[in-house]
């Protein structure tokens, strides 16, 4: 099963994970993921037919609340952590030409 993680797959995962990997990192990732998946495949031994997947340990339900502002305007405090800001907004690289 280890060959499932080939160059093409690593490329695809890099896109999903938004990571740019060096050649060395790609080789390492192939090896590490192959090994880990080989181990995780152990789960296949278990018959889980008819078992409902359990996402929350106690099966609690959605929690609803009124959509009310509770924490006031924290714009200045929040922007202090921004890598770049302009006119009270987060600044990002140009995304459209025109």
């Amino acid at each position: 099963m280890e060959n499932r993680i080939n160059d093409e797959m690593i490329e695809h995962i890099g896109i999903l994970a938004k990571l740019e990997l060096s050649a060395k990192e790609r080789e390492q990732a192939k090896e590490d993921m192959g090994k880990m998946l080989g181990y995780i495949d152990k789960m296949e031994e278990l018959d889980t037919s008819g078992i409902e997947p359990l996402s929350h340990a106690f099966g609690i339900r959605n929690v609803f609340r009124e959509d009310e502002e509770a924490n006031g305007n924290m714009r200045e405090d929040v922007l202090k952590n921004a890598p770049e800001e302009k006119d009270g907004m987060f600044l990002v690289p140009r995304t459209f030409e025109g």
């Binding site: 998946l37 995780i40 789960m43 296949e44 278990l46 889980t48 078992i51 409902e52 997947p53 359990l54 996402s55």
Partner: peptide, 11 residues
């Protein structure tokens, strides 16, 4: 993988 793991978690 993911769904299988959630079923194993249930077990």
């Amino acid at each position: 993988y993911y769904l299988k793991a959630l079923k194993v978690k249930a077990l």
